[in-house]
Structure formats: structure tokens, C-alpha cells
Amino acid sequence: MTTRTTVSAPPRTTPHGTRSRRRTLGLVAILGALLVAVLLSLALGTNPLSPGAVWTGLRAHDDSEASVLVWTLRIPRTVVGLAAGAAFGVAGALVQALTRNPLADPGILGVNAGAGFAVTLGVGLFGVTSAQGYVWFAFVGAALATLLVYAIGASSGGSISPITLVLAGVALAAVLDGVGTFLQLIDPETFTRLRRWGVGSINDTALTDTWQVLPFLAGGLVLALVLARALNDVALGDDLARSLGTNVARTRVLGIVAVTLLAGGGTALTGGIGFVGLMVPHLVRWFTGPDQRWVIAYSALAAAVLVLLADVLGRVVARPGEIEVGIVTALVGAPVLIMLVRRSRASGL
């Protein structure tokens, strides 16, 4: 079912296959960009390597400087970047589809804040130290925050205005951040451990921790792709979706589960990277049109590219130091948000 809905679906609505050609070209372009981004991520940093040196280092896997650099530093963060990027991108596409809100993003809606708050609790009260331990707290926090924001949206029967939902998320994030900051301030040890965590970095997670989280992200991704067709129907409105035979309630619940897995897992790995889930679906729709099957598949790839490139940019700009990827995406993404609302008509879905 998964493969059928993701890859081979023929375009139902477009004439003469122009959109299908555009989609295919776009897919080639994104895969090429992904390759370039991975190479850049392996090569660039405080100590840049030539592509040849990267290749020898990869092949050798020994004690040589290039090999150690590639295997212990660059590969782990590249893997985290790919996984977390895809997770936040798809989570953003899902949230936008579920809430039919062009301004939705796991960061803006407070889902990342929920996960972050739960992790602060875990570190401050239960002495958790590894990403493996973070992940469960992050899931619970993300799930509760998603449910809460979603309940606010659902209580209006799906007719909630984009701004109300955004504000609910902002209020939630403010409360959670306030309490989280307090917990950090009364305990300098928690403060030291977490003050870098919430910024959104893909550099601090060990590969072993990443493998632990990866199954959850994969599960969320598969679930999102399976749901894509039903989401297309939901986009037409609840009544029409029901008459097309889609179980709206089940789609919503499973959608929330997928968002929780993706945003919670991504936050556990990185501390939360904002605005990726906002920007990527908008960029991607330009190629794909409104079909969620394509939007979700494209978003996964494009968001991974974006996160890797943002991370590389953060490494290059502030040499010999680094700027965390979450800061780069916020600096790039907030103007995108402002641009979206400055357009005469907020982008519809």
C-alpha cells in the first residue's frame, strides 16, 4: 500500500501530464541536491576536507585524521540532519494538512516546546542524561502538546482560523518555556546541561542514540505516507471526505500519532529545529501541487536538504566556531513566515 500511494500514483487532475513532468524533474533535482548536501556536510567544517580526502577517509575507516573526522564527527551529524530534517518536514506537511492551516508548523504550534519541556522535566527531576532517555519524555511532551493544540482546533469543528491556532501554540510554548526556564534556573546543573540543547543542534547526538530514535521516525514517516490519500480527501472538508468513504476521525487520530512520532523523535535528537516544517511544504507545493502523497514525499527529502545545508552554512559562517542549525533555520524561516502573511492572500491549501 505504501509504495502504491507514494511513488506510482498517476496525477488525477492535471491535463497533458505537465505537472507529472514537473514532479519528476523536481524529484531528480531534489535527489541531486540531497547528494550535494550530504557531500558538503561530510566535507565542510572547522577543518575542511577535499572530496578526495572524504572518499579515502570513508573507505579507509582507520586512524588517519580524515577518517576519524569523517566517521566520528561528520557522519553522525549528517545522519541526524537527514533524519531530523525529514521528520520535521513531514510533521509540518502533516500539521498543515490536518489543520488546513498554511501557517502551521510543529515549532510554531508549540509541539517542540512540549517535547522540550518534558525533557527538561526528565533531566531536572529524574536525572536523565542520554538522548535515548530524552526520547520517551520528548514523545510524551510532543503528544500532549499536539493533542492540546489540536483539541483547540477541533473544538471549532475544523473551522478555526489560522491565527487562533498559531496563538494557541504561542501561548502554550510561552507557558511551557516559562516553567522550563524556571526549572533550569533553580538548578544550575540542569541549566548547564540543557541550555545548549533547546537551541536545535544536530552536532551533539551520538550515533548510537540516533539508531534508537530512528525506528520511531521511520514509523511516523510510513504512517504519514499511508495517510496521504485520506488527507487529500480531508482537504475537501469533513463532509465531502466522509462521502468519499474516508474515515475522518481515524485519519485525524493517526495523523496526530504520526506528528507526535516525527516531532517528538526529531526534538529528542536535536532539541527542536523550528520553521523547517513551515517553509518546506510551501516550497514543495510549488512543484507538486496540492496532492498530499507528493507533498509528503517531497517534504521529507527537501527538508533533509534544507537542514543539512543550514547546518553547513552554520559551520562555514562562524568559523572556527559554529552556529547551531536551529538558529540558522529560524533566521531564514521567520522572514518566510512574515512574507507569507504579507502576501495579499494568505496561501491557501
Binding site: 510554531i108 491565527i163 498559531v166 496563538l167 529560524a330 521567520a334 522572514p335 513566515l337 512574515i338 502573511v341
Partner: peptide, 11 residues
């Protein structure tokens, strides 16, 4: 005004 404010705050 509100959304721009949120964006600027985020930056």
C-alpha cells in the same frame, strides 16, 4: 501585525 510580531520574536 500579530503574525509579523511572532516571526520577529522567533528571530
Amino acid at each position: 501585525l500579530i503574525i509579523v510580531g511572532i516571526g520577529v520574536s522567533a528571530m
